[in-house]
């Protein structure tokens, strides 16, 4: 049940994230990508297997783990990925807000860097 539930939640988060990212609102896109990142982190965490286990902490006085503990490596990797993802998400929010600049901006109509073709079908001129 654990495995199924876990996989289901990864799938749901990923699908919802991409669904949002495929909307045309810039902030929705960023939120969606953040969710997709969360799903990836969850998957990475799952790579260490989601079994019931104690945290990989040695209590004071212990010198070795006597009981089953969670796999510490994916945790460390996920921690790294979370922080990187957070930095990128912050950047993305700032970029989306700057791009929108308080206006309604359609993510499918960003044409300053990619001008649409000219009337005769030839490529449009870049600034």
């Amino acid at each position: 049940m654990t495995n199924l539930l876990f996989a289901l939640s990864v799938a749901a988060i990923a699908a919802a994230g991409l669904w949002l990212a495929l909307r045309r609102d810039l902030v929705d896109i960023v939120i969606g990508l953040a969710l997709v990142g969360t799903a990836a982190n969850l998957f990475l965490f799952g790579a260490g297997r989601v079994v019931e286990a104690r945290p990989p902490l040695l209590a004071a006085g212990e010198t070795a783990f006597a009981h089953a503990v969670a796999n510490p490596l994916p945790q460390a990797l996920v921690l790294t990925a979370i922080v990187i993802g957070f930095a990128l998400t912050c950047f993305a929010v700032a970029l989306a807000l700057r791009l929108a600049g308080g206006r309604e901006v359609d993510g499918d109509a960003l044409s300053a860097a990619e001008p649409p073709p000219a009337r005769d079908g030839e490529p449009g001129g870049l600034p």
């Binding site: 997709v36 970029l95 791009l99 870049l126």
Partner: peptide, 16 residues
């Protein structure tokens, strides 16, 4: 604007 738009597309696709 061109730089921000370029950056945004780059960001979205590369994040994936």
């Amino acid at each position: 604007a061109a730089h921000f738009e370029a950056g945004f597309k780059y960001l979205v696709l590369n994040l994936v």
